[in-house]
Amino acid sequence: MSARLRVCLPDQKLLDALEPTDGVDFVLWDLTGPAPEGRLDLLVPGYMGKPAALAALEGVDVGLVQSQSIGYDGVADVLPAGCVFANAAGVHETSTAELAVGMMIASQRGIPDFVRNQASGTWDNTQRASLADRRVLLVGYGGVGKAIEARLLPFEAEVTRMGSRTREDDRGTVYGIDSLYEQLPLHEIVVVSVPLSEQTAQLVDAKFLAAMPDDALLVNVARGPVADTDALLAETSSGRLRAALDVTDPEPLPAGHALWTTPGVLITPHVGGASSAMFPRMVRLIRKQIGLLLDGKEPVNVVLR
């Protein structure tokens, strides 16, 4: 490592938030155009950039690449050899959980219908489903799943946790994914927050959806390709299931796509982490990584080497 740490940032906003820092030289580069000369001890790509942009690092002397996202699907395919890659665990979980619970409440209590009724002056006070006392299955029990659980419990929902393998913790059993089809029929709300991988691509397929009980709600805050769009459209357009989707496949969802107008489907445009909580938390993470590197210590959140 150089005597002074060289940190490469994608935009002026991050630069303004981080300067000045003793022992650190900052440079700006958004992975377009020529790379800065010399070694970059820490590089932060832009938020929501495509993994393919990391191909620009080929031939650049980079130590740590600090992503601004939790997910890193597709990164291993393009990350040049020798680069260390860290994700943004700890930055987005709170906001994503906040949105997931908000979508559950909106879908259960009929908020989208009430918004439409307000535009037409329609007074429809028929009873709606609650979130309280509902059985909620969390498919994916990483940082986002745990943050969703922490927010659901005060709403008096009955929460079942499911991870990659069966294990016990202080709240009881975390079921393994091998018990998925035993658990799906028992839950009125299913929340998917798994990372996208070969194992989870198209996890929410026709078989998965068919195992959910009538009028159940699917919430997807994972990645669009975790769900089979055609199967999801078939179940929701028939009225048997409902869905709250922060992610879709394809994404962005085309303007004329049938999901937009399917009754019982609530769509947000991949904004789980896009709240005012993100930027200060991202700045804190970068500062932490800088401090660790200055002290000669290992960075946190490393997911690829």
Rank of each mutant, 00 (worst) to 15 (best):
L184S: 06
L232C: 04
E158S: 14
Q183M: 14
T122M: 05
F26S: 03
P34N: 07
T173P: 06
K288Y: 08
R305Q: 07
A88M: 13
R287A: 10
A55Y: 00
S237W: 10
I105A: 13
L153T: 15
I105M: 14
M104V: 15
W29G: 04
L40E: 06
S238C: 09
R223Q: 10
G143F: 04
G145Y: 00
D170E: 15
M282E: 15
W29C: 05
V24Y: 05
P263D: 11
R6V: 14
E19L: 10
A210H: 07
S197E: 13
P250G: 08
F208E: 06
L285T: 11
C83H: 14
M212Q: 13
F208S: 11
R135Y: 01
G121R: 00
P10I: 05
D16H: 13
P213S: 12
G90F: 05
S2W: 12
A210T: 10
P263M: 05
K13P: 04
V204T: 09
G264F: 07
R109L: 15
V44N: 07
P225Q: 06
S164V: 09
F155E: 12
Q12S: 05
L217M: 10
D25Y: 00
R165Q: 15
V91F: 12
M282N: 15
V283T: 14
H270K: 02
V174A: 07
A100M: 08
Q12V: 13
S275V: 01
T94H: 14
A231P: 03
